[in-house]
Design a protein around this nucleic acid. Sequence first.
DNA 1: ATGGTGGGTCACCCA
Length: 259
Amino acid sequence: MKIATWNINSVRLRLDLLLGFLKEADIDVLCLQETKTQDMYFPAGELAAAGWPHQVFRGEKSYNGVAIIARRPLVKTNHMEWTGKSDCRHIWAMTEDGIGVHNFYVPAGGDIPDVVENPKFAHKLQFIDEMTSHFQAYKPQSEILVGDLNIAPLANDVWSTKQLLKIISHTPVETDGLKRLIADGGWHDAVRAYFGDGQKIYSWWSYRARDWAASDRGRRLDHIWVSHDLADRVVQAEIHRDLRSADKPSDHVPISLTL
DNA sequence: ATGGTGGGTCACCCA
């Protein structure tokens, strides 16, 4: 099974890019974030016609939105509400092989890394805390967790640890929180483990760079984790960096894991 | 220290 995650930043605007990626990368299960559309406008028919007829999605107008699309049946589905909000930041489905897939879109957290001054940052930290409590209580087995977690936890997940220490996505309270979620939540950071600790890995480059590829000031905000029982089934991981060079790209690229 | 770009919807929100 090849599973991928991608913050697509509008599924309707980038439908052709999405279809091209699914075929080119030969994806079985794709998790999307920031679909930015209500369910009635989700391009279900086009994706089904292309070969991915099994779909679950939760969208809202303008913001957020998550989806799981698959070649093979999704036999169960569910979602949870986090931090008391009904925004569309989580969806879960089980494949016919009995593998559960959690797809998360963690709040970005705004610009000021202070929970008093910035309620968006407080929301983000609370979201991570709730995820940690949840997975501590329900130790994952035969589960995969993917998504745009909006945190780059390790030094080699950012272009400069020093210059990003006070930048939301790489502040110590966030990176400590995400590491704790991995360790205490029962997860294995499969993509980082595949590439090893020594090399930079990014999945996001800002739209605001003059030349994103030349400056290469990226961050690894998107993640694929597996429960420990699946760790030794990992065959390959890929960062689909070429998608950042597409016409009208998302600022995130897909990452994928083959089990 | 600042402002830089992009998406959605319709004057701003969000990333």
